[in-house]
Design a protein around this nucleic acid. Structure first.
Length: 307
DNA sequence: ACTCGACCTGAAAT
DNA sequence: AATTTCAGGTCGA
């Protein structure tokens, strides 16, 4: 057992709640004041008291791992300055200060975001828990039972019929096929990691290395949250709704008229166009802008009481 | 190349 | 209470 106390004073703004509720990570649960989840295969409880972060685990903890996972070293104040291009973003930065792009395990991100497509947040959490219960390692803490996400090998060795019991629906075949692909190809993860953002995006969605069931949006999530490629700008329905406001002053009227922004889905060409505009405006930190915009959009247009 | 309907399932809206 | 719509999309015709 180990307890770690990390002073947040020497880092920029950090807000655990915002990080956990920004749709960038699934499988973490809040009980009382603590967030429970897996950090590099170790079950931990995270809680924040203003300038202090408390980390608890049954196993040995390395402070470096925690700092790396929460990405405390990243200079968010500098990033915030760079992406603060209009009132909308400035307001969002104020409201959701302390949000950070976490450094998840890439494989976990792949599994999570394939499961997450075209589902709402409660349904996603439910599916992830079912999947973990079915295939993952069981670990207890504070009298609560938790299940780790399955390994990709375990998924590759499962069957479609079995996977369907988790309520994955049509995503089951995506997940199975993807798991097989990743385990079959040598160093799949490392190959993606070594690529530049655009190459990685293309590799995930086209050609030989393509993952079945991974389109542009899921690929962007994987690259941003799993591989920390900050140029990635995942465009989901929430980003699309807020897009004209978030990019105010940077989109010409033609684009506005052509696309109308009334669509709920984008073609490949449109998706890339909107993403490229965001990358032009927000530079290499488009991914951070995306998190702020996502939060702001849920707040503005969402009816869910969770946010 | 581009558009558009189908697709599993469960939550949320009507 | 039953029914329809929608949800952090992707595939294939």
């Amino acid at each position: 057992m180990q307890l770690l106390s990390i002073s947040l004073k020497r880092y920029g703004p950090f807000n655990l709640e915002h990080c956990m509720c920004s749709g960038q990570i699934f499988g973490w649960t809040k009980f009382g004041k603590g967030w429970y989840g897996f950090l590099n295969n170790t079950l931990v409880r995270l809680s924040q008291e203003e300038e202090k972060l408390i980390v608890y685990s049954n196993r040995e903890l390395v402070e470096e791992d925690v700092i790396n996972f929460l990405n405390l070293d990243e200079d968010v104040e500098e990033i915030n300055r760079k992406i603060n291009v209009n009132d909308f973003i400035e307001n969002a930065i104020k409201l959701y200060s302390g949000i950070r792009v976490l450094r998840q395990n890439p494989v976990d991100a792949i599994i999570e975001f394939i499961c997450a497509q075209n589902k709402n947040i409660p349904a996603i959490e439910k599916t992830i828990i079912k999947l973990s219960k079915m295939y993952g390692e069981k670990i207890e803490m504070d009298g609560i039972t938790f299940f780790k996400l399955p390994t990709i090998e375990r998924l590759a060795n499962s069957s479609l019929k079995e996977l369907l019991e988790t309520g994955l629906g049509y995503r089951a075949k995506y997940l199975l096929d993807t798991a097989k692909k990743i385990t079959k190809e040598d160093n799949y993860i490392e190959k993606i990691r070594s690529m530049e953002y655009i190459s990685a995006l293309n590799a995930l969605t086209l050609g030989e290395m393509r993952l079945y069931g991974v389109g542009l949006k899921v690929a962007d999530c994987i690259l941003l949250y799993g591989f920390h490629k900050l140029e990635a700008f995942p465009i989901d329905v929430w980003i699309l709704r807020a897009y004209p406001y978030a990019l105010k002053g940077f989109i010409d009227k033609n684009l506005c008229n052509i696309n109308g922004f009334r669509k709920t889905k984008l073609g490949r060409k449109e998706y890339l166009l909107l993403g490229n505009i965001a990358r032009k405006v927000f530079g290499k930190y488009a991914g951070y802008a995306q998190l702020y915009i996502y939060m702001a959009s849920r707040n503005l247009f969402g009816r869910s009481k969770k946010f």
